[in-house]
């Protein structure tokens, strides 16, 4: 079992390495010369050359990659091309905001989704299942911006309960912060929960086709116990996987939500970085997103291995 966990971690590290190449090459194809962008139209050839030499931009591609990768390991994310500020400091605050948003959404949506998913699986074909199935299906079928817009329409425009734009200030108390984040929070909870409810239900129903479930029915075991004791324990692997995927999405895929609500998160920072051709910034953000994804997926796989009684209790 330890061998499997170890193997999984190695695969994750290899994936991260491939990701770093992709990110580095991928961002390098962005058009425009960094030195020209930073120094502007008026820059002299000499100053451009000096800038390039200072930043190592005159080196061959693989050298640049090596020094960049080395920087990543030592925590030196480089300096932002645009402002000259350290990227670590730029990202720091934003990363905190994103983690706060993702954390609160996860805390609410994960338990809620699992409970609702189990409920739908427990009463398949009944009205509660139908409502949940159709409701979540509709929610995953429409773009996030649609849901976000509706939230604004209902809570900000019609009811006037919540601010349409997220406002974050360091002086805010925790509850003020949460209040300021309310709209992106609600939107993300809806989007993420819809997906997780569906996958939890599907994961349980998939296990429900097993002969041991039929045996439990024939032993006169109650519905609730069949779902919670017999099915759920065997569906933990796939459910954890879905949760991990959705958490990864929360950290990285929330561009739209952050844009609509002007939430100062990491995704927004990266968009700005792309538009200003701030390569080091874009690369750092991309590595954070991919790293989060890979780490979460490894954790999900490890959890699945650990929850497998065959692997946990060898013969």
């Amino acid at each position: 079992m330890q061998r499997m966990v170890f193997q999984r971690i190695i695969i994750g590290i290899v994936t991260l390495w491939v990701v770093s190449i992709l990110v580095f090459v991928g961002t390098s194809i962005l058009p425009g010369d960094v030195a020209e962008i930073v120094l502007g139209q008026t820059a002299t050839p000499e100053s451009l050359a000096a800038y390039r030499a200072e930043r190592g931009l005159d080196q061959p591609m693989y050298m640049q990659y090596a020094s960049w990768l080395g920087g990543m390991f030592t925590g030196d994310l480089g300096t932002s091309k645009a402002g000259g500020a350290s990227i670590a400091s730029l990202i720091g605050g934003r990363f905190g905001n994103t983690m706060l948003l993702a954390g609160v959404v996860a805390l609410i949506s994960v338990p809620m989704s699992i409970v609702l998913g189990l409920l739908a699986a427990m009463y398949p074909g009944t009205w509660i299942d139908r409502i949940l199935t159709f409701g979540t299906l509709s929610l995953i079928s429409v773009p996030e911006f649609f849901i976000a817009t509706f939230m604004v329409l209902i809570f900000a425009v019609n009811l006037n309960w919540l601010p349409a734009i997220a406002h974050m200030s360091p002086e805010d108390s925790f509850w003020q912060t949460i209040g300021g984040m309310a709209m992106p929070l609600i939107t993300l909870i809806i989007v993420v929960a819809a997906q997780m409810i569906r996958m939890t239900r599907a994961g349980i129903l998939n296990v429900m086709n097993s002969p041991y479930i039929e045996m439990a029915i024939l032993k006169g075991v109650r519905r609730k116990r069949i779902i919670l004791r017999h099915a759920f324990y065997n569906a933990i692997g796939p459910i954890v996987n879905v949760v991990a995927l959705n958490l990864a999405y929360l950290v990285s895929g929330v561009v739209i939500v952050e844009t609509i609500f002007a939430y100062p998160g990491l995704a927004k920072l990266m968009i700005d970085g792309v538009q200003t051709r701030d390569l080091p910034l874009v690369q750092a953000c991309a590595m954070i997103f991919c790293g989060t994804y890979v780490i979460l997926i490894i954790m999900a796989d490890v959890a699945a291995i650990l929850s497998n009684p065959r692997l946990r209790n060898p013969k």
């Binding site: 290899v14 990701v19 895929g253 739209i256 968009i271 991309a286 991919c290 994804y293």
Partner: peptide, 21 residues
């Protein structure tokens, strides 16, 4: 492995990069 790496990049980000490039 290459596929895993591509999947790990958020799709909107990839789109953003491609459109900019």
């Amino acid at each position: 492995r290459v596929n895993d790496a591509i999947i790990s990049l958020p799709s909107i980000m990839l789109g953003l990069l491609a459109v900019n490039a």
